[in-house]
């Protein structure tokens, strides 16, 4: 069920786009939905990040993945347990661009004895890295449809992506990589029993959705071959707020576009928000310097003054002495009663 529902949902989206675009609702699917989707995407994204920024982080809670800053003769793991903002910057860079924390994944298993052992598990890191970079290249390549004239970096990217000159139109390597990586990520969830046990529909849905987006895009390029000039006229029209639909853009195009709109709308309300979340994680973006800098809880009541032990003892000395608790300063010697 956890796998079937998201799969059926993606199939349903494809059916909706097919019927809708065939039934003369091209302006709805080609113009209204893309605008709505990008508005919901940006609004939802900003709303989520601002919401996170409003939550106070009163303590330093970085995950300490190495030796903390200590005595001068103890070597510090300055990027895995950073105490300076430079260290944090390097740590964030490694996290965002190389997924360093996934590289550290371990897998626990029991082998006969029975003994517990931990081994390295790099599937998620490797497949994730392939997937994200292929997706990035594909998104950047799509600028060719939105920007006129075409920026130089898109041309460079296209040249290297179609470098092997296989077939015509040229096969993009990123297309192969993304489909392969999603399949491997999906197989990882399905075949590793402990990963399958904790997987939810919200884990499968983005995988199926992005797989469907990639496959519909590839169908358009390699099999049915959509009319790129007409599609670009619509895309540039959307970007310049003068959208026009020229000619028949084909059912596959509308399916592709509708699935992308769904992804954009789904994005801010799902686990895909790790795109913004990675920058907002206090376990990554804080320096472990709580022994060097005093961090004051932002919601402390300014009227509550610090209460030192000395003043505490002053306040309760009598009762402490009465209860036999040792005190730093004895009670003043009893004044002899006037007789």
């Amino acid at each position: 069920m956890k796998i079937l529902y998201p799969f059926v949902a993606v199939l349903g989206l494809i059916v909706i786009a097919t019927i809708g675009s065939r039934a003369g609702m091209e302006p709805l699917f080609g113009i209204v939905f893309p605008y709505l989707a990008i508005l919901i995407f940006l609004g939802g994204f900003i709303n989520k990040v601002v919401g996170w920024a409003k939550s106070p982080v009163p303590f330093r809670i970085p995950t300490t993945c190495g030796q903390a800053n200590s005595l001068p003769w103890i070597e510090q793991a300055c990027f895995d347990n950073p105490s300076t903002s430079f260290g944090v910057t390097v740590r964030m860079f490694l996290e965002v661009f190389l997924f360093r924390s996934l590289f550290r994944n371990t897998q626990a298993d029991v082998y006969d004895g029975p003994k517990l052992r931990y081994g390295s598990s790099k599937y998620l890191w490797l497949f994730g890295l392939l997937f994200h970079y292929a997706f990035l290249v594909i998104v950047l390549r799509h600028i060719r449809l939105f920007a006129d004239p075409i920026p130089f970096f898109v041309k460079i990217l296209e040249f290297f992506d179609g470098f092997l000159q296989i077939g015509l139109p040229h096969l993009y390597q990123s297309d192969l990589v993304i489909v392969g990586a999603i399949t491997l990520l999906l197989l990882r969830r399905l075949l590793l029993t402990n990963v399958r046990y904790i997987s939810l529909p919200a884990d499968y849905f983005p995988l199926f959705l992005i797989l469907a987006i990639a496959l519909s895009g590839m169908t358009m390029r390699y099999l049915t071959r959509a009319d790129v000039v007409n599609i670009k006229q619509l895309a540039v029209g959307l970007a310049t707020f003068k959208p026009v639909i020229v000619g028949d853009l084909g059912t596959v195009f509308y399916v592709h576009l509708f699935l992308v709109c769904t992804l954009l709308v789904y994005f801010p309300f799902s686990k895909l928000m790790h795109m913004g979340g990675v920058f907002m994680s206090p376990t990554r973006n804080l320096a472990n310097n709580s022994r060097m800098v005093r961090h004051i809880n932002p919601w402390n009541d300014p009227n509550l003054k610090p209460h030192s032990y000395a003043s505490y003892e002053d306040e309760f000395r009598e009762f402490m002495v009465e209860a036999g608790i040792p005190v730093d300063k004895e009670l003043p010697a009893e004044t002899p009663a006037a007789e």
Binding site: I38, F41, L42, I143, F146, A147, D148, P151, A235, V236, A239, T240
Partner: peptide
């Protein structure tokens, strides 16, 4: 995200 808008 809005690169195409201001580029165009």
């Amino acid at each position: 995200v809005t690169f195409p808008v201001w580029y165009d």
